[in-house]
Computed example of a mutant assay.
Amino acid sequence: MVNNCEGWGNNEDETRSNGGGRYDKGESWENKDDDSSNASYALLAHVRERGIPTQEPVLNKDGQLYSLETFTNCDKEGSSKQCGPYLGFSHRFFENYEFLWSLTETTRLREFYSAVKNDNDLEIVKSVVDAFERDIVPRYTGFTPGVIHGDLNEQNIIVSEVPGQRKVTCDQRVHDVIAILDWAHVTKSYFVFDIAINIAYLSIECEENKQLDVGGHILKGYANYRKINDVEFQSIPLLVCCRLCQSLVYGAHAYSQQPGNEYLISTAKKGWPLLRKYWNADFTNLLNKWKSMIESD
């Protein structure tokens, strides 16, 4: 059975074999290979062993974890608190693995500038990319390296409502993170990148007047598992801007390839205003506010 799924690729098809195994087949500018799949499965096992629920591969009818199939004539219509326990994983595949969505590849956004039609927004993107090259790349030696999830957004986090809140209104109830999904963007990079990615995506979905506070809340939770150094801390606001630029620019490019696939521009409505807000913010004042939030009881 093959069902079309909205996604970033030109054609992402969920395929279910007779044996119950599931895998994704996509024809896109984000390609996968056998080493990538093996490394991802190894990481998923590592994470589950440390108490973080995530998807578990199921053998297909041939007893394999996955298989690669070719389809022709297909219909082509269209918080971070739980991060700590899986840090420290290693696999040979991730040693030299880089791909378009890695924050280390931020300068490749220049290849996709034509997808941004608003001149003012394009100038912001160009400024962010230039700042990344000038200010972030030289700081790599001060960042802590490790394997990161790489796409810790609100759609990849499963939460469960904390019991005992029947008298609390739905929009005020507290939830715990109970599982993390979608490990397709895992790579060996820098831990601070995962923090920035998480802040970027969760800020998009936050109330507008609280968006710039999201970083403080995430960092306060993250501090329970790992301390970040000053170089990393100072870099986070700019890295958040970098991830927002990636999401918005690649989304615009993908949409130009698949007009009508609204998923591809799902972050654009709130994402562009957030990027403008972040880029115009005083980073020093923002970091001081986050520091106060982290140190508060």
Rank of each mutant, 00 (worst) to 15 (best):
F193V: 03
D171P: 00
S127W: 14
Q165L: 10
R173Q: 08
E123H: 12
D119M: 08
D171W: 04
D135W: 02
Q165V: 10
K117R: 12
E133K: 03
A196W: 09
A184H: 00
Q165M: 11
T144H: 06
S189H: 01
S127A: 15
Y222N: 07
V162W: 09
V214H: 00
K167G: 10
H185E: 05
H185T: 03
C170I: 14
I199F: 03
N198T: 01
A179F: 06
G164E: 13
A179I: 03
V186S: 01
F112D: 09
I180Q: 12
K167A: 14
A115D: 05
F132T: 12
V214P: 04
L212R: 05
V116S: 06
K227C: 09
R173N: 05
I148S: 03
T141R: 14
A223T: 07
K167P: 06
A131V: 00
T141P: 03
V177C: 06
Y225H: 14
G142D: 12
Q211I: 10
D135A: 09
G164I: 12
S203V: 08
E123Y: 11
D121Q: 08
L122H: 07
V129K: 07
I199V: 07
V128Y: 00
A179L: 04
R134H: 14
A115H: 06
T144M: 05
F132H: 15
D171I: 03
I218H: 05
G215V: 14
Y201G: 10
E205W: 06
R166M: 05
E208H: 08
Y113R: 11
V137M: 12
N156S: 15
K188D: 07
L109R: 00
Y140F: 14
E161S: 11
E207D: 15
N120Q: 13
E154Q: 13
Y222K: 05
E154V: 12
G164C: 14
G216M: 12
G164S: 12
D213E: 10
Y190L: 08
